[in-house]
């Protein structure tokens, strides 16, 4: 059963057609990578799925419910978390407040504290710095915070937009390692990345986007061997 199904999705920015009929599906437990160059529409897809952008036509169904007409703040409580591009943590709030905001749609205080402990276990650095102002963290730590914040909503699926952007190679490896852990813990992952090599290495399946259309899709390991993918995204061939 597909957890998230997107069919013939079309999105416009004014008169410009950003997505020209996108269809893909994400099954429970999978790690799916969406790869493509700048301006291919990767971020637009995530923003439309999470309700930040309106769809012109097409459908998005998540666990059997239609999302295109659902407001953004309701989508989160259905079990979908979004780690936006460029981290977008709350710079002037403390680490703890950032994490608590991740659980904004939840009301069960005890369980929120449990999730908080889990996040602290996974990201020990965040625990050390819980009362520090988030804007003073390093780039890598901010990305950890953004991930931890998304996990606080106890999502069924987590949508990540360029988690490796602007990070040192060491942090990039760590982030991808954590994404694998999150997936193994049972959360479905939809990953948008420019770092195609890394993304394909941890994904089950992948979709390749070009100027608003999906041009290739299939098993991630096989796509890695595909000549056109190698040439365009992996800097080989």
């Amino acid at each position: 059963m597909a957890m998230l199904t997107v069919e013939n999705l079309e999105v416009y920015y004014g008169v410009i057609k950003a997505l020209k009929g996108i269809s893909f599906e994400v099954r429970e437990g999978e790690v799916i990578a969406l790869i493509g160059a700048n301006g291919a529409g990767k971020t637009t897809i995530l923003h439309t799925v999470t309700g930040l952008l309106p769809a012109k036509s097409g459908s998005i169904s998540f666990c059997g419910e239609e999302l295109t007409k659902t407001p953004a703040h309701k989508i989160v409580s259905m079990g979908m978390a979004h780690v936006p591009e460029g981290r977008r943590i709350f710079q002037e709030l403390t680490v703890l407040d950032n994490l608590k905001l991740g659980a904004f749609t939840r009301r069960d205080k005890e369980e929120i504290n449990e999730s908080l402990e889990k996040v602290y276990q996974r990201f020990e650095r965040l625990k050390e710095r819980k009362s520090q102002i988030a804007g003073t963290l390093s780039g890598g730590e901010q990305q950890m915070l953004a991930l931890g914040r998304a996990l606080m909503s106890r999502p069924k699926i987590i949508l990540m937009d360029e988690p490796s952007m602007g990070l040192s190679p060491l942090y990039v490896s760590e982030i991808f390692h954590i994404i694998q852990e999150i997936s193994q813990a049972g959360t479905t992952v939809l990953l948008v990345e420019q770092n195609a090599k890394k993304a394909l290495s941890i994904a089950d399946r992948a979709y390749v986007l070009e100027t608003g259309k999906i041009v290739l899709s299939g098993d991630a390991k096989e796509l890695m061997k595909d000549d056109s993918v190698k040439k365009a995204y992996l800097g080989e061939g």
Partner: peptide, 14 residues
């Protein structure tokens, strides 16, 4: 406060 700091992130957190 989250709206002040980053409206997109706060919207995407619900």
């Amino acid at each position: 406060c989250s709206i002040r700091d980053n409206i997109i992130a706060s919207e995407s957190l619900g």
